[in-house]
């Protein structure tokens, strides 16, 4: 199990381009493949990861590691997810980072960025479905309060300069007001 954690997060460490939420669906894929957590449980993990300082992908990896294998699991996940960038940064520094290299990366990013956009859009749809916001037996197949939360949150993020952490905290308070 510790070995599985290590290999899963090492893989993710190598491809975590784009930062932020881009790696969330990839981590979720690994988590589901190993049946460590359900997508709903993983959504809560992402919420906690988003509230803590530090990169959200690393935080999610550490939380998953902690849930699966306690303190040791968390430590293994942290090392595995950080190791690839450490190696790559050291190697690049060794071989000097020249303009040519940068062109090469730009070209790779030409196709990669739109794919990452698709990946994150997929993650949004997938998380909405797995959290029973779409396709359940509620009115017209939607869970309307949840949808309203999504729209309100998205509106705040798009049209104000609100900190994402505040959005999470505010929705938590609203959740208590409505559901408790």
């Amino acid at each position: 199990m510790y070995w599985n954690l290590f290999v899963s997060f090492l893989k993710i460490g190598f491809i975590s381009f784009g930062g932020g939420y881009a790696m969330i669906p990839v981590i979720e894929y690994e988590v589901r493949a190993h049946q460590w957590l359900s997508t709903q449980e993983f959504t809560d993990v992402v919420a906690i990861a988003g509230m803590s300082p530090g990169p959200i992908a690393t935080n999610s990896a550490v939380f998953v590691g902690y849930k699966v294998g306690g303190m040791l699991g968390a430590a293994i996940s942290a090392v595995a997810v950080s190791l690839p960038s450490l190696l790559i940064v050291v190697l690049l520094s060794l071989f000097m980072y020249k303009m040519k290299k940068r062109n090469f990366m730009d070209n790779a990013f030409y196709g990669l960025r739109p794919v990452i956009t698709g990946l994150i859009a997929y993650a949004a749809i997938h998380f909405a479905m797995q959290n029973d916001m779409i396709g359940t037996s509620k009115l017209l197949g939607f869970e309307w309060i949840g949808i309203l939360f999504v729209i309100a949150g998205l509106g705040l993020l798009l049209f104000t300069k609100i900190n994402p952490v505040m959005v999470i905290l505010l929705s938590g308070v609203m959740g208590v007001v409505i559901y408790y």
Partner: peptide
């Protein structure tokens, strides 16, 4: 539990927002 009923849709919003933000430069 009630708080997280509200937070889960907020996570969907955050991810959708990330897609829109990166989409603006990628597409």
């Amino acid at each position: 539990e009630a708080a997280f009923m509200g937070i889960r849709p907020a996570i969907v919003a955050l991810i959708a927002y990330a897609a829109i933000t990166i989409g603006k430069t990628a597409i």
